[in-house]
Nucleic acid binder design. Structure first.
Lengths: 246, 246
DNA sequence: GCGGTTCAATACTCATACAATTAAGCTAGA
DNA sequence: TCTAGCTTAATTGTATGAGTATTGAACCGC
């Protein structure tokens, strides 16, 4: 019998876009796990039962599980079944995992952890960028600054520019491992910015801080770049904290 | 026809242990990609052709590709096929990816990047650990120190203890995002230690540095912890550099 | 009690058929 | 000649059923 997928899918919201089915299922399950609807140690229903419940084939379901397994969220073994792994084994910095985590409002502790990471990584990256940046990097950062000024952080375009600004700095650090962190950092930047705007507008204009950072990197001054970036993240953290507990 | 997997598998070394087939294929392909045998932009052979060449079913092959895709190594689309993505999109900090990268001797640039990451993250983590460490953390670190002293870094047990030491510090920092980096850091620690020993023994005894770091964390002195860890990583980097270009 | 054996539950693998997607080539019309 | 739209074919995506391998747990002999 061919499945009529899409009707009365009760158990999961299936906000699936144009993805492939295995991708949608992986996302839905991932969001459910990150959101706490399946706790570490929980055993998922068997392949046949669960795939029928989701109205997908076992093939698609299994490929979804492979994706989650590759990111450390679940672990499958014959006889035992598929169970959610301990949180310490999740690849929290995986871009998809971060996106899924922000689907359901993440815990305050998680936000704090991400900011602590930013506070550690971004100043160091800024210092490296001040030493290694190319002309193209500078041009990109300048353009991002203009865009931020034109649109403001309340708009989608403005946030994209902000993200591009921070991302370019990580690129300019010329370090593949740091680059791999860019998506994680980007997630923190974007979402915390959104959080801030939930509570009546921006508490403070972040543009001057960004300009100072830009100047330091253009000048090739690592110490200044580190200091300004530290200040920038500190202010962002303060604003976000204020937004979280008003 | 049932496949006779395991005989004359020419194209890939198939150093597959007790893994499931999809896992072995994912690993073999992952190692091949990380090792440069498939370059970014390259299109893999079609599912049917390639799975036959590997003597596995299309199902198992596809699940392997899902794993690689989840880690950002490849991207599949109908009609176009499956191609290796740009290196900037790889999740370089994924534990599996790191393990695969170290299968074929990694580039000097990659080692440098990892050490730069250690230099950024570990001192900060040590400072946090000095503030937040529990009695259990201290006990674990002490035990790891003893083990390192007993076995020395030339043995497997000694290296495991070294790794446990660094890992406990990251745990003691009480930050999930930093914890997620532990496997990456651990990979850097282990492999660079092995590299060092390739060239006639250890250039210098790292134990005193570790003890100083331990003392700082026990004393709850963040600044001292940061400083000693910085020194420790700096020395490790110098030794590794010497080992790489003797 | 204890060590080995059997059993059954579950994921894993295979094979095949068919559907959906999409790049490229083709055709019709201006 | 150029372009918009259609057609086609190549490739991945999905579904289904049959059979295999693994492994925890119950069982049995000692």
């Amino acid at each position: 019998m061919r499945q009529d997928r899409g009707l009365e899918n009760i158990t999961l919201p299936l906000a699936s876009g144009s993805r492939r089915i295995h991708g949608s299922v992986a996302r839905d399950l991932g969001v459910a796990i990150l959101g706490g609807r399946y706790a570490p140690g929980d055993v998922l229903p068997g392949e046949i039962e669960f795939s029928e419940k989701l109205n997908v084939s076992r093939t698609a379901y299994r490929e979804a599980i492979r994706i989650l397994s590759a990111k450390g969220l679940v672990e499958s073994r014959p006889r035992t079944g598929t169970r959610v792994t301990q949180r310490s084994r999740w690849n929290l910095l995986d871009p998809d995992i971060l996106a899924w985590a922000f689907e359901s409002e993440p815990s305050e502790a998680f936000i704090r952890d991400l900011f602590e990471l930013r506070m550690i990584v971004e100043p160091a990256a800024a210092a490296l960028a001040a030493e290694r940046r190319s002309g193209l990097d500078i041009a990109r950062m300048g353009h991002a600054l203009e865009e931020m000024g034109r649109h403001g952080l309340a708009t989608e375009a403005g946030r994209a520019a902000d993200q591009a600004f921070h991302n370019t700095i990580l690129e300019a650090a010329r370090n593949g491992a740091l680059m791999a962190l860019s998506s994680s950092i980007a997630a923190a930047v974007t979402w915390t910015t959104i959080f801030k705007h939930r509570r009546q507008g921006l508490p403070r204009d972040p543009l001057p801080d960004h300009r100072a950072l830009y100047d330091a990197i253009v000048a090739g001054d690592p110490a200044a770049a580190r200091a300004t970036m530290t200040e920038l993240v500190r202010l962002a953290l303060a604003d976000t904290k204020m937004a979280l507990r008003p």
